[in-house]
Design a protein around this nucleic acid. Sequence first.
DNA 1: TCTTGAGGGA
DNA 2: TCCCTCAAGA
Lengths: 355, 355
Amino acid sequence: MLEATLNEAATLKRLLDAVKELVQDANFECNEGGINLQAMDNSHVALVAVKLHADGFALFRCDRPIPLGVNLGSLTKVLKCAKDDDKCTLKAADDGDVLSLKYEAHRADRVAEYDMKLMDIDADTLGIPDTDYDVRVTMLSSEFARIVRDLNSLGESVRIEVSKEGVRFASDGEAAQGNILLKQTEAARERYENYGKDDDDQAEEVKEEEDKPKKAKKAKKVKKEEGLEDEDEEMVSGDNDQAEFQAKSEDEGEEEVSDSEKKKRKRSTASSSAKKKAKKAIDDMAEGGGGGVHIEMTQHVNLTFSLKYLVIFSKSASLSDTVQLMLKNDVPLLVSYTFGQGYIRYYLAPKIGDD
Amino acid sequence: MLEATLNEAATLKRLLDAVKELVQDANFECNEGGINLQAMDNSHVALVAVKLHADGFALFRCDRPIPLGVNLGSLTKVLKCAKDDDKCTLKAADDGDVLSLKYEAHRADRVAEYDMKLMDIDADTLGIPDTDYDVRVTMLSSEFARIVRDLNSLGESVRIEVSKEGVRFASDGEAAQGNILLKQTEAARERYENYGKDDDDQAEEVKEEEDKPKKAKKAKKVKKEEGLEDEDEEMVSGDNDQAEFQAKSEDEGEEEVSDSEKKKRKRSTASSSAKKKAKKAIDDMAEGGGGGVHIEMTQHVNLTFSLKYLVIFSKSASLSDTVQLMLKNDVPLLVSYTFGQGYIRYYLAPKIGDD
DNA sequence: TCTTGAGGGA
DNA sequence: TCCCTCAAGA
């Protein structure tokens, strides 16, 4: 039995806006920790991972893990029927094949109920490459969206190059060739330096949007060039240059999530005020002048990606003011949006060679 | 000779927005009382009736009745050429085949004139079933629009059920099944009780948007369960369960209109202040919090309608903040929008059986 | 399949 | 009023 109430239906709507473009059907894995979704697009080039923390819900109850096989098109239709600020309750029986959605106006004079058929979906939980990225770019999600949309009108792919100069997005098209250079914003750098003095603060900024302690550490590495740690990740890591993701067993997936959840909570408690400070710095950057770009780099990187997918990813801008791009040569790009109730992350394999 | 000036061209534009979706050509019947239009959609399932009172015009002159056979597509095009707040003057000669439209900016520094070819249209003035509805639902026109649009994305038809619980809109679709329950708003009910004490007030609220005294009385019945009166209506009434409307002679139509016009004026004079009070109650309800629903009911009803048409009807929301739904089992639904210069009413035959 | 135009929503 | 999405046509 799943019963979960979100205070704003808009969260779900926005989440689906981008995901439905990538995959038609997907399992919402519900367990005590919250709701997860992982799916690859049909061509196995892009992967999307969504997490909604249980404590991001106004009410959350899930007695035992349930996979909800959902046709995202249908779910989108049903969500369209919710007003953005409606209270939204999801319900599913343990063995049922129906997902019920209840929308309640806050004034309680309107109650809408929808029942959606569920389906069985092959449940290959996918292994997400755990990568020690060399670069993290934090920027306005709207700016990222603008850039990929602009370049998408010129060509099919974009080369993303990060150097001391900044981050450059370049695209070649038949009609024209274009590139956009974003320099580290002075203001952003200053704020960064201030808060960066305390390494824990800085690391927490990342941890906040990371489930896996390992990744948090790696983010630290991005800043301080610490050595790698925790190379026991069950999946591809390091020199992964393949364009496709691999499936792993479902059990491993579950384990990983709940395990890291615990660790995350421990850390959060330890330094939550510092975290807030760091978060504030990021927020300031986001608002402080419409273009703050924050770059952390241990290595120059230069990769090429399909713009089609980046344009789809960038539709998640409505979920968060900022987006983080994590890069490392020959490894899938990670595009991450973090919001109050969880996150949505996209992984996109780079184009190899000159295609 | 017709000469009629509206202070805002927007009124005409908005009127046509929905009508042009239902019918391609229609007669604007002009007489001393104003301008009327009645037409059925091609499938004879829906009927639209528009009334613009002569005194809703800044200037109105019509020496003798003229039918203006208009292609609504053309008229829409011509109206697109007017700015919303332009003063708009319609002119037609008694025997001409041209309708002239003049648009004047209020600062009088721009005058545009358009001439539109008229056409002969078979002038079956249609008999509108005069019905003693069992239910009147008054709600925000925007909310009605939202509901039918939402359900239209799920299925083809909607079941409208009114009971003590409230009014429920339910639709079944392939992907999902949904229903929306609107409860009588407390605030709306209170206001209603206050003004409802005086039956005349209450009835006037209806009369104001009714031409036919008979209908006004029946609306009273909705409240008080008075017996039927005036069963001499020339058209189908009472147990009409047929899905189509019937034509009647033009003469009868004209007679009816002018006759009821007179009665209406008499009544208006008698109780205009009470009327204003009642109107205010409705306005308050409409504005008092974005969802006031007001239900008057003498009988449970349960009917099914094609959403396609309701969606078209609901485009008239721009004409009025509120809409009234009048229902009775096995009888066409009346959807009525009343605005300063007149009204637009839609009648839609219910679906019979399980189709 | 891609492009353009219209309609609806923010 | 502008932007975006959806639908129809090439």
